[in-house]
């Protein structure tokens, strides 16, 4: 329901960002999916830690599901981001720090899921993938620190500013937050399913 309402709101009520056109509305898809992709990564690591502490396989199951969902969301976020990037910067890809971060996220999710697929023994798979999940989480703060020093950024602030505003429109901001909350709830529902 909420999803439908937000889609409608985005299409009909949110004013187009000046200079970017209607297609720019893809940002209301891009930001929430990117948010969930990052959230799912930490959720997966959280359950991985819980599994290692308790040895309960249900936590491994949750960790794996979160990673699978996160992988889907990160792909959607990357695709929508690339389209948005083409619209605003004229290229699908330019190794901007956030693009790099999200690409690393794809690599980590991909590596994690490959590892799961490669280990057949259930116990070994749970342990090994939990360890990998926790190990990969360590890289995040470092990448956040390093990447901006290595690649020049074009991300958010400049775009919105180029639309002639110092801050986001309240309408845009509200819609973005609502969409992010909605995406989080979709993620939560998917996590609960088949529990």
């Amino acid at each position: 329901m909420l999803t439908a309402a937000i889609i409608a709101a985005v299409i009909f009520f949110v004013p187009p960002v000046k200079g970017l056109g209607d297609l720019a509305k893809i940002i209301f898809f891009h930001v929430p999916t990117a948010w969930v992709a990052v959230l799912a990564f930490f959720v997966s690591a959280f359950f991985a830690a819980k599994f290692l502490r308790t040895g309960e396989f249900s936590f491994d199951e949750l960790s794996a599901r979160s990673a699978r969902l996160g992988f889907i969301f990160v792909l959607m976020a990357t695709a929508s981001g690339a389209i948005f990037s083409k619209l605003t910067w004229g290229a699908y890809w330019n190794w901007d720090p956030r693009q790099t971060t999200i690409f690393v996220l794809i690599l980590i999710y991909g590596a994690y899921l490959t590892l799961r697929a490669a280990v057949t023994d259930e116990k070994a798979r749970a342990k090994v993938s939990a360890v990998y999940s926790l190990l990969s989480v360590l890289t995040v703060p470092f990448l956040v620190f390093i990447l901006p020093r290595m690649f020049f950024s074009l991300h958010p602030a400049p775009v919105i500013n180029s639309a002639g505003k110092l801050e986001m429109d309240t309408e845009i901001l509200t819609a973005l937050i609502a969409a992010a909350v909605d995406a989080t709830m979709i993620f939560y529902q998917l996590m609960k399913k088949r529990r």
């Binding site: 690599l107 590892l115 490669a118 798979r125 090994v128 990448l143």
Partner: peptide, 19 residues
């Protein structure tokens, strides 16, 4: 413990060593 090993090692190592 992986049953399929071809190429798995660099795939796993790369994201971890990016920093």
């Amino acid at each position: 413990s992986a049953s399929v090993k071809g190429g798995l090692f660099p795939i796993l190592l790369f994201p971890i060593t990016l920093p």
